[in-house]
Simulated scan of single mutants.
Amino acid sequence: MPTMVFSMLAALDVEPGNRVLEIGTGTGWNAALLCHRLGDLNVVSVEVDERVAAEARTRLLAAGYHPELVVGDGARGYGEGAPYDRVVATCSVGNIPGQWVGQARPGAVLVAPWGPVYGGEAVARLTVTRAGMLNGRFVGSSAFMRLREQRRTLPPTNAFLDPRAWPAGGAESTTSLCPDDVGDWIHMFAIGVQVPDLFCRVSDVQRDLYRLWLFDTGGTSWASADHVRGAGSFRVVQSGRRRLWHELESAWCWWDAQGRPGFDRFGLTVDHRGHVVWLDEPSAPVPRRGRDARMRGEAV
């Protein structure tokens, strides 16, 4: 997608003499653009798929470019070519690998698509500090294939309940929050960073209705919300130790109360606390809910 390639390169903001580590060679086009700007010797590109790497190498050679192409696990970076002034990933992550940071110079820029388990994803532009921290803002939405090491196999629906037995004794209620109003990319991002172990599925899709399912990755709880086009209230069923719809609704209400911020108002810090998403300023971390909040001793 040319607009995504160019917007990420703009965020990377390379300068003459920079050394760049690219995670995910793909077709080789992005690597070729970097070579054209910086010269072959300053570009290292890592691709996990041997066949894809071979095809990219053929294309690059045909175009007259000779970056260092490495077949390997991109999560490990490429220490032999370090240190780097820029790191760019063409796959998404939920955790920035420590090797990327360790192989970058202080002051280096790291550009990577980042997103929570629930969904919603944006490109983060982060700067490496002398203390080995990362800090920066999100610069726009994205939708990339996940880094292989971080792909998750989420529990199937039948690990929680037999959908044919729904409502399966769950606690029933209604909500005025329409399931359609929590399904956009920014909604999923705002919800997902607040409830990190939440994921969703959709079933029973018909012309004017569908069922939104919520689950936790620990396999303890589930919820469903039935969308009916034009309705003013929607049936909710919840079961397990947690009330997942209530957690989602609280997360959405927080986002709404902040003025419905877009991706550009969010930022990310990676330090001894882990990955901390903030709103407007690093001193204003986004609240955590559900299991994660309980572990931190925060209000749910």
Rank of each mutant, 00 (worst) to 15 (best):
I23K: 12
W213S: 10
Y78I: 06
P97G: 03
R86Q: 11
R235N: 06
V20I: 13
G28E: 02
V48Q: 14
S173V: 01
L33F: 02
V48L: 15
D280G: 03
V111A: 06
M1T: 11
V111T: 02
E247S: 03
P67W: 08
M295R: 12
G290F: 06
T127I: 10
A257R: 12
L209W: 11
L248K: 04
E121G: 01
V88N: 09
G274P: 00
L34C: 06
I186E: 10
V193D: 08
P106T: 04
W185I: 05
V20N: 13
L110S: 01
A53G: 10
P113S: 11
A53I: 09
A284N: 15
G119H: 07
S92C: 07
R207S: 15
N42R: 15
S233Y: 01
P167V: 08
V111L: 07
S203G: 13
A82W: 02
V43P: 14
G259M: 15
L147H: 03
W222D: 09
G262C: 07
D204Q: 12
V276H: 13
V48S: 14
F266V: 04
H272N: 05
L69R: 04
R152I: 07
W254D: 08
L110K: 03
W213V: 07
T58S: 12
R211S: 12
L214A: 11
A10K: 09
R105V: 14
D256S: 14
H246D: 11
V193R: 05
S224R: 09
V205G: 02
Q194A: 14
R125A: 09
D181R: 14
L147G: 03
E55H: 13
I186Y: 03
G290K: 05
G240L: 09
L268H: 11
D73V: 05
W245C: 05
C200S: 10
G192N: 04
E68V: 14
R125I: 02
D280F: 01
F160C: 00
R242V: 01
M188V: 00
E22K: 03
G119E: 11
N30V: 10
H272Y: 05
W114T: 08
I23Q: 14
L212Y: 14
L154G: 10
I23W: 12
R229I: 00
L161Q: 09
G24T: 01
R151H: 06
Q99M: 03
A112I: 06
V88K: 07
E121C: 01
A124I: 02
G232A: 10
D204H: 10
R291P: 00
P167W: 06
E249W: 00
L209S: 15
L244V: 05
T174S: 04
G230Q: 00
I186M: 15
N95Q: 13
R59F: 00
F266C: 07
R294S: 02
G120P: 06
T174Y: 03
P156Y: 00
S250H: 11
I96G: 10
A53K: 09
M1I: 03
T174A: 01
V300T: 08
R242S: 09
L41M: 11
L61Y: 03
V87A: 01
T129Q: 08
F263S: 06
A89K: 06
W114D: 11
P156M: 00
D181N: 15
D264C: 12
F160I: 00
R229K: 06
D85P: 08
R242Y: 07
R137V: 03
R148Y: 06
M295Q: 08
V44Q: 04
R201V: 04
F234P: 08
A190P: 02
G259H: 13
R148M: 04
S283G: 14
P116E: 09
W255Y: 14
A293I: 09
